[in-house]
């Protein structure tokens, strides 16, 4: 097992897959999904109460994966914790052997299943990265010295389809300055848009993993176009899905094609199966990964 930044340094095309902790304590399915991909992906990216839906935490699942010899990425958001808790959880992650960290702002609580909760956002993704970088130097945000320094591989996210995209790029630049060593993107369905984006951010000289979300149906594509920020599924793909007799097969075919087309443009792929975890091995086969 190697940390993600080490893999990027070794010029490996990195493959990660997202897994979500359950709402509850039954980990059977999450661990089964991970086992299916043992040896096939470089790391498992564990979500932090994704979409502001209360679930089991990201860190304990990361730790359990690590115990099983699977490399985790700890997603940590600013939604639910102030700077004291965030820094403490980063230290906790390190002592549990969890060193790949994905720093996120996090969804707003109003979008989840506890909309009455108090949103925290004491830090944002940029200052969270700064905090993690400081911890690595043996200092916390208050300037106090640490007993023992953690070491992390720090990641962040970017949306290549954000409009205006300049705002995404300026923030991406800030994240690099704050310590981000790799990026994963929001779902991309248009290789041309992605190529233009990669061209614009080449000056940052930072590895980017393109985000792939399996399309389940034409309706899902239309829903994302309308409701998911920075995601655009072009009409020809929607039509392809619509006409396909076997949606699952077509979905994998499209995703594999996108990965093959975008592989030369970037340094890795981040797969978000959203319920279709069991189909990821077939996708990896079809994409030649």
């Amino acid at each position: 097992m190697a940390l993600l930044n080490e893999l990027f340094e070794a010029k490996k095309f990195v493959v990660t897959v997202e897994i979500g902790p359950p709402k509850g304590v039954d980990l059977t399915e999450a661990l089964e999904d991970a086992e299916l991909l043992r040896g096939r992906v470089d790391a498992f990216n564990v979500t932090d109460q994704q979409s502001s839906v209360m679930r089991l935490g990201s860190l304990p699942l990361c730790h359990l994966l690590k115990d099983r010899g699977l490399e985790p990425v700890f997603q940590i958001t600013c939604r639910d914790r102030n700077r004291i808790a965030l820094q403490s959880d980063l230290l906790s992650a390190y002592v549990l052997g969890v060193q790949n960290i994905l720093c996120l702002t996090g969804d707003h609580v109003s979008l989840g299943d506890h909309p009455q909760a108090k949103p925290v956002f004491d830090l944002d993704s940029v200052s969270l990265l700064q905090a993690a970088s400081l911890l690595q130097k043996g200092q916390d945000l208050a300037g106090k010295e640490l007993k023992g320094k953690p070491q992390f591989s720090l990641g962040a996210v970017v949306t290549p389809g954000g409009d205006p995209v300049e705002l995404q790029i300026i923030k991406m630049e800030k994240k690099v300055k704050a310590g981000a060593q790799f990026f994963q993107t929001q779902a991309v369905y248009e290789p041309e848009t992605f190529a233009r984006f990669m061209d614009k951010v080449s000056y940052l000289n930072v590895p980017v993993m393109v985000g792939i979300v399996l399309l389940k149906s034409a309706a899902m594509a239309r829903f994302m176009n309308k409701n998911v920020a920075g995601v655009h599924v072009p009409e020809n793909l929607i039509e392809e899905m619509d006409k396909a007799p076997n949606k699952a097969q077509k979905s994998i075919e499209i995703a594999a094609r996108l990965i093959r087309e975008m592989r030369p443009l970037c340094q890795g792929v981040h797969i978000m199966p959203i319920g279709w975890e069991k189909r990821v091995p077939a996708l990896l086969d079809a994409a030649g990964l």
């Binding site: 702002t105 707003h108 993704s125 200052s127 705002l167 920020a229």
Partner: peptide, 15 residues
């Protein structure tokens, strides 16, 4: 709504 100080989150959609 998130009081972000360093630019937008990933959630802005068509501005």
């Amino acid at each position: 709504p998130k009081e972000l100080l360093n630019g937008p989150c990933g959630g802005y959609n068509h501005g």
